[in-house]
Design a protein around this nucleic acid. Structure first.
Lengths: 108, 108
DNA sequence: ACAACCCATAACCGTTTGGTTATCGATAAC
DNA sequence: GTTATCGATAACCAAACGGTTATGGGTTGT
């Protein structure tokens, strides 16, 4: 039995180090493992492991060139969170539904 | 140094049992600890502990009457997630900004 | 008054998790 | 060709986590 997408995403983002990596990739764009390691405060293997988790959750992508691996944020990976919120909180559902309508009307 | 709101919320929702409690309260409205325990699959103390975590995260409220404690979902407790998403993902920021505008125009 | 019930807390325990160091294959630099 | 760099993996470890049982204070029912 596979874990639901939102489960994996929540778990991934619960760790501050991992979230910092995602934030960094979102702010500054594509980065190599080395670059990420140099500002993360943890060791390179730790960074690699975290990136593995984020990748498995669909939150980042990787691209190999030569001996380096370049990682990129995948904003759409957050979609399961939005879906979950609208499923289980009418409060947000109403808001997201309106947003959906608005976007459709603006960009049909 | 206090933990950032989104950190607490992410951590709280990372656990499936805890998320199930929040989902239940969101779907079915106010519930006592006993009612929640009977369908949770874990012991009453476990439920109490989880509810404590959710409460600390601002995701539920509690109200005492007699010997029972009634818990309610607090949808606004999810706001830190939306904020975080719009801060660190331009993709969602654009969408949420539009939502913000829409809501302001609809309900000024 | 007493028994039963509700819920929170404490003490404890196995598993998971986030970190480390060591290592190795692959590529780049000299 | 040799040396240095990059990044993934393995093995290991302490701390955090999610569960349990035991208990006790407060409230309701008989």
């Amino acid at each position: 039995m596979r874990a639901a997408p939102h489960q994996v995403v929540f778990k991934s983002l619960a760790d501050p180090t991992r979230r910092a990596l995602f934030e960094r990739l979102s702010r500054d764009g594509e980065q190599t493992v080395r670059m990420l390691t140099d500002t993360s405060g943890v060791s390179q293997p730790a960074v690699s492991k975290h990136l593995g988790v984020l990748k498995h959750a669909g939150l980042v992508r990787s691209r190999h060139r030569g001996r380096e691996t370049h990682y990129t944020a995948r904003p759409r990976g957050l979609a399961p969170l939005v879906d979950w919120m609208s499923d289980y909180s009418r409060f947000w559902q109403d808001r997201f539904d309106r947003l959906e309508d608005l976007l459709k009307r603006m960009d049909p």
